[in-house]
């Protein structure tokens, strides 16, 4: 199977008040195949989000090697990372992070705007995506007029805008009740099965983790367990 992500000996330190260095990730190794659906679990503060941000090239590791679909991230310029986030990766956050005072439709169009897509194509694609997440009837609504589950569905549609091959979801159901969370999970399964997306899911829920193909357990910035399901 083709490798999508290859991370070797990833370290991340924060410099709270220089020179006080605080290492959060202590040399993580992870290889993810194309089309894999895996989950990362672990206690709060174990470094899951920090790791995810590095995987999503929102942040650079302090040390280590990272190859994303053939691109050596260490050597890539900042604007190249912007392009990777724009076209290769779709983010789904626990707090949705929809742009305020901006309609669902416009939120979904945003990544396409940065990709330089034509206006007509943007509109067409955004409508199509909102239809997939069953939000067509709310596309003119602003975020403050939507429920948590609805917001997260819009956020997933937005993450899918430029048809990325990787979806990174950081506790996407963390703020939702189990019934709504179930609906969101179903969308991920659908994207995985029907479109072959590579999906990495951070979750607190053992049941949801059980639904994925591989479970990585993080503790104090180290991988302490890895279980492949079949």
């Amino acid at each position: 199977m083709a490798v999508m992500l290859d991370l070797k000996n990833i370290r991340k330190s924060f410099y709270l008040n220089t020179p006080n260095e605080l290492e959060i990730l202590h040399g993580l190794n992870l290889t993810v195949d194309k089309g894999e659906f895996l989950s990362i679990v672990g206690a709060s503060g174990s470094g899951k989000s920090t790791f995810m941000n590095i995987i999503g090239v929102l942040d650079r590791p302090t040390d280590g090697y990272y190859n994303l679909d053939g691109v050596d991230i260490e050597k890539a310029k900042d604007w190249e990372l912007s392009g990777i986030r724009n076209k290769k990766i779709g983010f789904v956050f626990q707090t949705y992070n929809l742009v305020a005072r901006t309609s669902a439709l416009k939120n979904v169009k945003l990544p396409m705007l940065y990709a330089g897509m034509k206006k007509k194509d943007r509109l067409e694609r955004a409508k199509e995506l909102l239809d997939i997440v069953d939000m067509s009837d709310r596309m003119m609504h602003n975020p403050d007029e939507l429920s948590g589950g609805q917001k997260q569905r819009v956020a997933i549609a937005r993450a899918m805008a430029n048809n990325p091959s990787i979806i990174l979801a950081d506790e996407p159901t963390g703020a939702l009740d189990s019934k709504t969370g179930r609906k969101i999970m179903d969308i991920f399964h659908k994207l995985h099965k029907e479109q072959g997306k590579t999906i990495i899911l951070i979750t607190h829920s053992p049941e949801l983790a059980e639904e994925t193909e591989r479970i990585i357990t993080l503790k104090d910035g180290e991988i302490v367990g890895e279980r492949r399901k079949q």
């Binding site: 604007w79 912007s82 983010f91 742009v99 990544p111």
Partner: peptide, 10 residues
């Protein structure tokens, strides 16, 4: 931050 995550350049 969101815009940057979605691919906005500086």
């Amino acid at each position: 931050g969101t815009r940057k995550a979605l691919g906005a350049t500086n």
